[in-house]
Every structure is written in structure tokens, then in C-alpha cells.
Nucleic acid binder design. Structure first.
Length: 281
DNA sequence: TGACCTCGTTTGTAGCCCTA
DNA sequence: TAGGGCTACAAACGAGGTCA
């Protein structure tokens, strides 16, 4: 488990983390438009963690340098990007401080090393901003399948059914449909209701949420928003829905997990309306 | 052969100075 | 003023040398 790192639910990411990190580290990849050298360095660090998974600062430095003095210099730069810096009484935030990266102490032989990896907020930021190609998203999904088990843990399976539509997660990572679900077309599929309940279910975890709960929230959001596509294109509706149904038909565990949430959502609304019925004079 | 010492490596913390 | 370059320092550990 990550230590000394707290991050909030999806609303917290949308309302606080996302605008904060975009202000600090940029809202487009440094390859498209570089805001500063600092932005480039942060993006390269996040990219390394996305494409290679959990690593020590020494290992990250070794990705680009082979001689010890260069590795040593690079490693110190990386640590400063991670933990921020205090200078003349002022503290500059590092990517650990804003919750994009988490650290874990792992004992290798006799040595206890700090291993760094992306947090779920970090994964969303990378998908949103770094302009990953499909193969980069695939690599990140492979490295973070334990962090986001219901989506990245089933990446190959999802690709076999959805094909390129799995990469819609990059558009979702912008925060789409999270707080502007009203823009979706009202259809017979209760997408609006499900996403509204998703916000209600995790509303008490704005300040702090466990990684597992956040992974669930993101995953419910992902599978629900897959339905939006089918409501937007009448011609494609049937095909899109068939694909969506197939995902759950072939994976019993996934079906139990997602439709358990759907039942919970349904109960939430029916309980509330039952209460209203009691009040009827 | 075992105890002890030295040195290098890896990881980590902190601060000063310079520059864009 | 934020960020980059550089340095000093420390802890833990392994490898190798020295000595009784």
C-alpha cells in the first residue's frame, strides 16, 4: 500500500487535483507546447513511470544514462521533482505532494528502497495530458493492472471486444461526463441516474479515499460511459449495446461486480421514491 | 579463518548560488 | 521568483583488504 499519500475521490480529482496539476505542470504534453523546462521534466518523469511501472529514482535515471556521475545527477533532479523543494523558507510542490505519484518502501535484499509509481490521479493526468499513443496506453495498462484491476486488469479482453473504443478512456480522463452528465442525451438507459449515484456513493471520500475504492469509482464510471456512445448514434445503437453486453456475458466476475453496483443504484432510487409514496396524503 | 576496517555504491536530505 | 546546477552530508550495506 502507498504510504503518506492521500488523494480524494473522482470529484476531488476533477475539482482540485486536475486544475492544480494543470496549472503547475501544464495542460498539454511538453511535446506539443512546452510551458517550461520544469513541465518537460515532470512530464518525462510521469511518462517513465507510466511506461515502465514502479521504479526507484536510481532506476528511472538509468533509463537515460549509463555512467554513474550522470545517473547520480539525474537521480537528484528526479527526487526534487518527486518531493518538491524547500528554498528560502518556501515550499514548491512535487508530484508526490499533489498526489500524482505514490511511494512504497520495498525491501530488496538487505536494502529498503523507495519505489515510485503513478497514483490513480496520476494515471488520469497522464491519459489526459501526455498525448499517449495507443501502444503507450497499452503499456501503462499492463504496468498498472493491479492498480485499476477492473479496467487495466482486463485490457486485452476489453480490446478484443471494443477494439479501438477502449482508448476512449483517454477522452474520459479529461473528466468528461463526470460533472456535465446533463449534456448527454436523455435516453431509456439511465446513464444520468447511474453517474449521479456514483457521485453520491463516494461523496464522503472527497478528502481521502482508499485506492481500491477510487479504482472502483473510476471503473464504474468507465463502464457506464461506454453506454453514452450508443445513445448518441441511432445507427450504431444496437451494435454498441451488443458489444457492451458481450463484455459482461463473457466475464462472470465482471458482471457480478458491475451489476451489483447497478442493483445498488436502483435500490437507492426506489428507496427514495418509496419514502415519497409514504408521504402522499 | 574470523574480526575488523576501508572504500564504493545506492538512497536520501538539504541548502547555496545562478539564471531566465 | 521559480527552477536548474551543484555540493555537502549521512545511513546502510556489500566487497575486498589486512591482521592477529
Amino acid at each position: 500500500m502507498p504510504e503518506n499519500t492521500t488523494f480524494g475521490n473522482l470529484q476531488s480529482y476533477r475539482n482540485y487535483t486536475q486544475p492544480t496539476v494543470k496549472r503547475l505542470f501544464g495542460d498539454t504534453s511538453f511535446r506539443k507546447k512546452r510551458k517550461s523546462k520544469h513541465q518537460e521534466n515532470v512530464h518525462k518523469l510521469l511518462e517513465a513511470l507510466a511506461l515502465h511501472g514502479s521504479m526507484t529514482t536510481w532506476e528511472i535515471a538509468q533509463l537515460h544514462y549509463s555512467d554513474i556521475p550522470a545517473i547520480r545527477t539525474r537521480e537528484k533532479e528526479l527526487r526534487r521533482l518527486l518531493v518538491g523543494r524547500k528554498d528560502r523558507g518556501k515550499k514548491s510542490l512535487g508530484v508526490l505532494d499533489v498526489g500524482l505519484v505514490v511511494s512504497e518502501k520495498i525491501k530488496i535484499k538487505q536494502n529498503i528502497s523507495n519505489y515510485y509509481r503513478l497514483s490513480l490521479h496520476g494515471i488520469l493526468y497522464c491519459l489526459d495530458v501526455l498525448g499517449f499513443r495507443k501502444k503507450d496506453v497499452d503499456a501503462m495498462a499492463h504496468n498498472y493492472e493491479k492498480t485499476l484491476p477492473m479496467v487495466f486488469g482486463k485490457w486485452g479482453y476489453l480490446k478484443s471486444i471494443l477494439d479501438n473504443d477502449v482508448y476512449r478512456i483517454q477522452i474520459l480522463a479529461e473528466g468528461l461526463f463526470l460533472d456535465n452528465i446533463h449534456i448527454t442525451k436523455i435516453s431509456k438507459i439511465p446513464i444520468f441516474e447511474i453517474i449521479t449515484y456514483l457521485n453520491v456513493k463516494y461523496q464522503n471520500y472527497y478528502e481521502s479515499i482508499s485506492e481500491k475504492d477510487l479504482a472502483d469509482q473510476i471503473s464504474y464510471w468507465f463502464y457506464t460511459t461506454l453506454l453514452i456512445h450508443s445513445t448518441m448514434n441511432r445507427k450504431m445503437e444496437k451494435t454498441e449495446l451488443e458489444k457492451w453486453k458481450k463484455i459482461f456475458a463473457n466475464d462472470k466476475k465482471l458482471k457480478r461486480w458491475f451489476f451489483g453496483f447497478v442493483k445498488e443504484t436502483s435500490k437507492f432510487y426506489s428507496d427514495r421514491f418509496d419514502y415519497l409514496k409514504i408521504l402522499e396524503p
